[in-house]
Nucleic acid binder design. Sequence first.
RNA 1: GGCCCCAUCGUCUAGCCUGGUCUAGGACGUCAGGUUCUCAUCCUGAAAACAGGGGUUCGAAUCCCCUUGGGGUCACCA
Length: 782
Amino acid sequence: MQRPGRPLRVHHPAGRLRRPQRAGPRRQAARRPDHAGHEARRQVRGPHQARFRPRRDHPRHRPGRPQARDRPPRARGPSRPTPGRRPRGRRRGRRGPRQARGPRQDRRRPRGREKGQGPQEGQARQGRRHRGPRREKDRLGQGRRQARRPHPAAPRPPRPRPLRLPYTPHPSFTTSHSATRAPPGPAFVPHPTRGSATRARPPYPPAMPGTPVTRFAPSPTGHLHIGGARTALFCWAFARRNKGRFMIRVEDTDAARSSEESARGILADLAWLGIDNDLGPYLDDLGEIKERDWPDGRVRTFFQSRRTTIYDQHIERLVRAGRAYPAFESAEEIEAQRKAAVARKATYRYPRPADVTPGEFNDALASRWERACSGARHVIRFAAPAEPLVVLDEILGEVAIAAGELDDFVIRKADGLPTYHFAVVVDDELMGVTHVLRAQEHLANTPRHVALQSAMGFRTPVYAHMPIIFNPDGTKMSKRDKAKAARKAAKDAVAKGAPPHRLAADCGIAPGDLDAFLAGDNDNTQTAEHLARGMGVALPEIEVWDFRRNGYLPGAIINFLSLLGWNPGMKQPDGKDLEKFDAAFLCAHFSLDRVGKTPSKFDRAKLLSFNADAIAAMTDEGFAQTWLAWMKEHEPAAHATIAALGVDQRLALAQALRPRAKTLRDALRPAAFALVGDADYPFDPAAADKHLRAEGGKGLAVLREFRAVLADAHEWTPEALTRTIDAFAKQRGMPNPGPVAQPLRVALTGTGVSPGLGETLAVLGKASALTRVDRCLREIGG
RNA sequence: GGCCCCAUCGUCUAGCCUGGUCUAGGACGUCAGGUUCUCAUCCUGAAAACAGGGGUUCGAAUCCCCUUGGGGUCACCA
């Protein structure tokens, strides 16, 4: 057991991977009362005692701290040892050889120790001179930190020790679990999307024992959120960069909201992005979910809902160790208490029952356990530790949480399923996860996890909390945004006089569902989408699926997402910042120490620009292929028409469309002329007036003349046709081809806007082009 | 409200760790020109930021403190 008042230190499974204690955690430094006091302490305190200075040393907690103006003069000069600095801003406090200053000599000291009592005079100075090399290339985003060793003369800091519990771990913790329902299946089957060429030689060197294992753990309650995709991407890139393994685990412990269909969709989106996993579920060629385990088959299934037996064993272990207990209050009772607390502006914390003594499986707990086992409805709560917790975060630095902030949270719900906190901790341990990269919204959960790990004797993985992605307006990007947008559109429509029952019928929604949705009773995404489709309203793109459907390229999304919170920090030969790169580049260069702390807003305009550039970078052939494949999935009718075109025509179309398409869906609009029959498009009256009828039908006359030229053309390619138009204009003494091009454009497409005429003619083919011109001359020319 | 995190152009960011080379660089967007058969692409240019205050220093975007602002989290959701 930890001594009270002493922070629980996290420790890492693989000692060599573990970063040494940071010397410059922002917060600890911030607690320094002032330079003078600091200076004195720096001189006299040995490194190790300093490490356990509890946070009560914060200046705010210490009365009568000296003010700045009371400071004595300080030593000057460039060689003056710099006091621990407060890291600020991006990356501050996470780079540089801080550790070598001597481990935290100026930050932590045991409670009660006063200035001037430390034995190691001058230690800090020495430590500083023995800094590790600068900016050395880091693996695991930690290399720089590894270089920061304490000075050899410095006493070794005490090793963080795992908490011991009065039990031996259940054999199931390290071996296979026959109780789980997972099919046996082969261990480590090759990834289907890697293709046969790479099957013989894996694209990534084989993972060695002790290499990092990251995981992406989605909850299958809907599509893959774009923020989730970023998390998955960084986890994946980190694993690839460090020759580790990337795992997917399905957190489906919310029985009411989880579905296998969602899991399938998320897996498909991940595969579409090109994020492949070495461990956990994947989709096979038939779209069936398969799982890939460690070679020794230790996990069996990565679906948490199938692992309840395992969680139950750990729950019992915890209860018998007196670190968890059954509680019998109903959810309603708790809710009432919480509301009451909120009403009197107090923070609600679950009050630990008087008969529960942490660490003791006494009679009271035994009878609670018996009552629970005999079927009484209950939850299991964790007896949270009373001591303060400190969590090391690769991105944020050190995050401390005061004692008593944690209450006895629920670890197993009344339905018998574990809560997120518990399942995560158990599975990260059992599945061999070494690095947890997740969104910053989980930061506040981390102390719970660390406390749980300590209580269970588990290792603590390396944590890295990534900045959150927001909407441009600063609100959190959420699936609810879709519901909000749809609700607003629908309410507007109703306000303008559309009867709700008509709206529901038009959109294919049950009237009751619509009422509930409009009233804000639920944020059902499906209802929102039906509504949007029925009303022809575009919903905000929030999920990967939205971007996929709207014709974004996975490469552009990967590139854009990478830049949300990370950047390579490299220049191009022309001196500009490097920001266009592919997934392979990311896998080669990703590191945690270039991940920022600042939340970012999701700028669709920039993503659109990235997508347009990605399309511009394709070949015409590649574009034609990708576009066709996209249409087949999302616009089958258009696909049928375009697929019927000849190869040359398709290529001409690609050539025409590619420069003016920002997305694959975008290409549909300029392609409209090719999607209609020769007699099926109307002539835009305004365009016809302007380009054909104006000035006494000048345009019509030119068109009539050019029709003859067209009829004589034998080389029917975009380039040749463009030359024909130019030559015709020149011959007629026109300053530019406009006077012939615009009438022709209206004739061929019905509008004044279309791709280049060479391409347009080539796509249509000679017969179709002449038919269209004739029809125009007939209908407009009379 | 408690606890925690964050702070450079409108947005994404470089620079910060290791203070001077920063009259702060790039990208997206915006605006103004130009090329072009329309639209789009493309080219050139411009406007645009170190949140505020204090401290340390010969010198602060950079180190320290405070304030302010933004965000996260406080579930039998994950």
